[in-house]
């Protein structure tokens, strides 16, 4: 009893194998196999036509997909670059300047559209204040940005804040230009939502 079951199982196994081999044979180019294998060659003709159709369909689909992908990528880049855009601050201040407000307004628009996107707001300072005070100042800057975004009805849980004080300058120099560059908030996406990572 057990041995016959085993035998039939063996038959079934080979059958399944053959079927899958045929099915898989559709995708590769229908060139005659270098080694003559009589049995599969009989079905090659039928497979050829089906494969051709499938190939064309696949190509069209892939083209559409590529286009969609490109569009999505462009949109994704647009959104990410808007999110990544830094805002800058005046010396020893955490007020949102008019130029920073413009930048943040652009963020509000895309954040409303992409509700699944979350990010971390990083506050930074120039090197002039004390190392320790700058940690507090950077935090205040990050919080000011967060409050601004939340005031436009965006969910507060989408934003986390961290301060790096003067520890991560964007520009390593000791002049007005570098200081202005370094007094900033940066944005680091933590959840991409419908943007896909």
């Amino acid at each position: 009893m057990a041995s016959t079951w085993k035998k039939s199982a063996g038959w079934l196994g080979t059958l399944v194998l053959a079927v899958t081999m045929v099915a898989c044979g559709g995708t590769p180019p229908p060139e005659p196999a270098p080694e003559p294998e009589p049995e599969p060659q009989v079905e090659e003709q039928a497979v050829d036509e089906a494969a051709e159709r499938a190939r064309l369909e696949e190509e069209a689909r892939r083209r559409r997909e590529d286009e969609e992908q490109r569009r999505r990528e462009a949109e994704r880049n647009r959104v990410l670059s808007i999110i990544a855009e830094r805002v800058h601050f005046d010396f020893d201040k955490s007020d949102i300047r008019p130029d920073a407000e413009e930048v943040l307004q652009r963020k509000v628009v895309v954040l409303r559209e992409y509700a699944g996107v979350s990010f971390r707001i990083e506050g930074h300072c120039d090197e002039r204040g004390s190392n320790e005070y700058n940690l507090a100042l950077g935090q205040r800057r990050a919080e000011a940005v967060r409050r601004y975004l939340v005031s436009y009805g965006l969910d507060a849980s989408r934003f986390t804040t961290i301060s790096y004080g003067e520890e991560r300058p964007a520009m390593r120099a000791s002049n007005e230009d570098a200081w202005a560059q370094n007094r900033r908030a940066e944005f680091n996406v933590t959840r991409y939502g419908q943007l896909g990572n």
Partner: peptide, 22 residues
């Protein structure tokens, strides 16, 4: 941030952010 021990060593003084301030 900014830890310091009390002179008897039983406590730590430090700063922490709460509601965006420290």
């Amino acid at each position: 941030l900014t830890p310091t021990y009390t002179p008897d060593g039983t406590r730590l003084g430090f700063a922490a952010t709460i509601d965006g301030r420290t």
